[in-house]
Amino acid sequence: MIVAKSGLRSSVRAIIAPDGNQISAAEGEPVTLVLADEVDVSRGDMLVDPASRPFVSDQFQAHLIWFDANPMLPGRSYLLRTETDSVSATVTVLKHQLNVDSFVREPAKLLQMNEVGVCNIMTQRPIVFDAYKENRSTGNFIIVDRVSSATVGAGMIDFPLRRADNVHWQALDVDKAARSALKNQKPAVLWLTGLSGSGKSTIANALEALLHTCGKHTYLLDGDNVRHGLNRDLGFTAVDRVENIRRVAEVAKLMADAGLIVICSFISPFRDERRMARELMGEGEFIEIFVDTPLDECARRDPKGLYKKAFAGNIANFTGVSSPYEAPENPELHLKTMGQEPARLALQIEEFLRSRMEEK
């Protein structure tokens, strides 16, 4: 017998049922298995025949059927549940949609309700599975929305992706703690979110200048600036917005690993993507800052003339006008900007950061 996830061999020494020991157990029968060896068996593991090993991987191709009225967006974090496990997962690539009438492959960027697509899925950690055509029980999964806990999709696993077995994390001698100690600071990701024109970039710029005068090592990631390089290939559809924040969050994680205080100024309209960014960071590193400015005031300021174009119908998918903004529910810092100078708000963030770091 093999413990699938770890690959360790063992055998069953005893089968204990409510009425005592027995020599066998049938499907669905509650029993306790005592192994002959001290093997770590945890949630998500399977005990399998050595000749019928399942796959163990964190990336695979699958056919996905979407149930929810809200579309499936590649890059968004969902919960994936198999017969034996539950794990955070993301659709990394939607290869194509299948026309359910003609079975023709059609290009698609998202899946709407009742649509079927073929996609690559990445899980937060390796899971144990079989191809659906080989084993329906261990080759199927459901997708659960992380906010509503509703089942929004179901899938059938085709095969693991080979590249997942070829890429390994490289151990490094210099770690985050060493880099932070050299800078005499603790890394943090200050995530400023709010409507266009709310004052995020102005506050972020003032904050970085303030931290710089205090001798802190910082870097400012601004929404417009990254679209000139890293994200120049992305537009403003819901799918592109999700990917925009995913990339930025990964960059912020690397910068925090370098020991920096990272200031991120992005509309980042969706709670799911801000939650994803938070979960990437170390414990207590992510600080969500809601730059709260009423829509009417943002439109009055209109520093780039975007609201005028959006209200005239000349800009599609404009946050607050033709695309939703999901305000933070429990941000670490809530800045109400009306009647406040950007420099004062920046000082408020610096004071919050300093007190938070002193607590640790």
Score class of each variant (00 low, 15 high):
residue 6 S to M: 04
residue 7 G to S: 05
residue 9 R to Q: 11
residue 14 A to H: 14
residue 14 A to P: 11
residue 21 N to F: 15
residue 23 I to C: 15
residue 24 S to Y: 14
residue 25 A to W: 03
residue 31 V to P: 03
residue 40 D to R: 13
residue 42 S to H: 13
residue 49 D to Q: 10
residue 50 P to N: 05
residue 51 A to F: 12
residue 53 R to G: 07
residue 59 Q to R: 15
residue 62 A to T: 10
residue 65 I to N: 14
residue 67 F to N: 05
residue 68 D to Y: 06
residue 69 A to H: 11
residue 79 L to G: 00
residue 80 L to P: 00
residue 91 V to Y: 02
residue 94 L to F: 00
residue 97 Q to A: 08
residue 97 Q to F: 02
residue 101 D to L: 07
residue 105 R to A: 12
residue 108 A to N: 01
residue 115 E to V: 06
residue 119 C to M: 13
residue 122 M to Q: 11
residue 123 T to L: 02
residue 125 R to F: 15
residue 126 P to D: 06
residue 128 V to Q: 09
residue 128 V to N: 07
residue 136 R to E: 11
residue 138 T to S: 05
residue 146 R to W: 08
residue 148 S to T: 10
residue 149 S to L: 12
residue 149 S to G: 12
residue 151 T to Q: 03
residue 153 G to M: 02
residue 154 A to W: 01
residue 154 A to Y: 00
residue 155 G to I: 04
residue 158 D to N: 10
residue 163 R to T: 11
residue 167 V to S: 05
residue 170 Q to F: 14
residue 172 L to C: 09
residue 172 L to I: 07
residue 175 D to M: 14
residue 175 D to V: 08
residue 188 A to F: 06
residue 190 L to I: 13
residue 192 L to N: 00
residue 192 L to D: 02
residue 195 L to T: 00
residue 198 S to D: 03
residue 202 T to K: 04
residue 205 N to K: 09
residue 207 L to G: 02
residue 208 E to I: 12
residue 210 L to E: 09
residue 211 L to E: 04
residue 211 L to D: 03
residue 215 G to A: 05
residue 215 G to Y: 03
residue 218 T to I: 08
residue 219 Y to A: 01
residue 219 Y to E: 01
residue 220 L to E: 01
residue 220 L to F: 05
residue 222 D to L: 04
residue 223 G to T: 10
residue 225 N to Q: 08
residue 228 H to R: 07
residue 232 R to Y: 11
residue 234 L to H: 00
residue 236 F to G: 04
residue 236 F to M: 08
residue 240 D to C: 11
residue 242 V to I: 06
residue 243 E to C: 10
residue 249 A to L: 09
residue 255 M to Y: 07
residue 259 G to Q: 00
residue 261 I to M: 01
residue 263 I to A: 02
residue 264 C to V: 14
residue 270 F to Q: 06
residue 272 D to V: 10
residue 273 E to Y: 13
residue 274 R to D: 01
residue 275 R to K: 15
residue 279 E to P: 10
residue 288 E to F: 08
residue 295 L to W: 06
residue 296 D to M: 14
residue 296 D to I: 14
residue 297 E to M: 05
residue 307 Y to K: 01
residue 311 F to W: 13
residue 312 A to V: 11
residue 314 N to T: 14
residue 316 A to R: 07
residue 321 V to T: 11
residue 324 P to T: 02
residue 325 Y to E: 02
residue 326 E to M: 01
residue 331 P to S: 01
residue 332 E to M: 02
residue 334 H to D: 09
residue 337 T to Q: 01
residue 347 L to G: 12
residue 348 Q to N: 10
residue 350 E to N: 08
residue 350 E to P: 04
residue 354 R to C: 13
residue 355 S to R: 15
residue 355 S to I: 15
residue 357 M to L: 15
residue 357 M to F: 12
residue 358 E to N: 11
residue 358 E to M: 06
